[in-house]
């Protein structure tokens, strides 16, 4: 059981670093929802920053890959993203088609390199 939970310290860190900062916005939405102008300039900026942070997270996984992904050469990871994106655009923005195409490139490329 202890290996399932790991150490309790990590779980406490999860709540402080992940759960509370995330839930705070949902609860604020629940409490103050009525009085906020959704078209306000502040929300436009906030949404742009949130999108860019998400983009940074995506870039981090591809540029500084964790674990097994680090065994794949840089050019192949970038190639998989580019190929997936091309198929995504060509398939009239099908997320599914894009993901499958990117996966085929990375798996075939890695298999081929050995």
């Amino acid at each position: 059981m202890s290996s399932f939970i790991g150490d309790w310290h990590a779980l406490a860190v999860l709540f402080v670093a992940g759960v509370i900062p995330n839930q705070i916005w949902r609860m604020l939405g629940l409490w103050f929802g009525g009085g906020i102008d959704e078209g306000s300039e502040l929300l436009v900026w906030v949404r742009a920053v949130a999108t860019a942070i998400l983009a940074g997270v995506i870039a981090q996984i591809v540029v500084q890959p964790p674990g097994a992904l680090a065994s794949v050469p840089d050019w192949l990871r970038y190639g998989a993203v580019v190929a997936g994106f091309a198929v995504f655009m060509l398939s009239r923005k099908s997320i599914f088609a894009g993901v499958i195409a990117g996966e085929i490139v990375i798996l075939a490329g890695k298999y081929w390199i050995g």
């Binding site: 995506i58 890959p65 992904l69 998989a80 993203v81 997936g84 994106f85 995504f88 923005k93 990117g102």
Partner: peptide
Amino acid sequence: GAGILMLTPLAFLF
């Protein structure tokens, strides 16, 4: 393993 790790950035990007 590399293929599974790649799912996250692809799904989020699209």
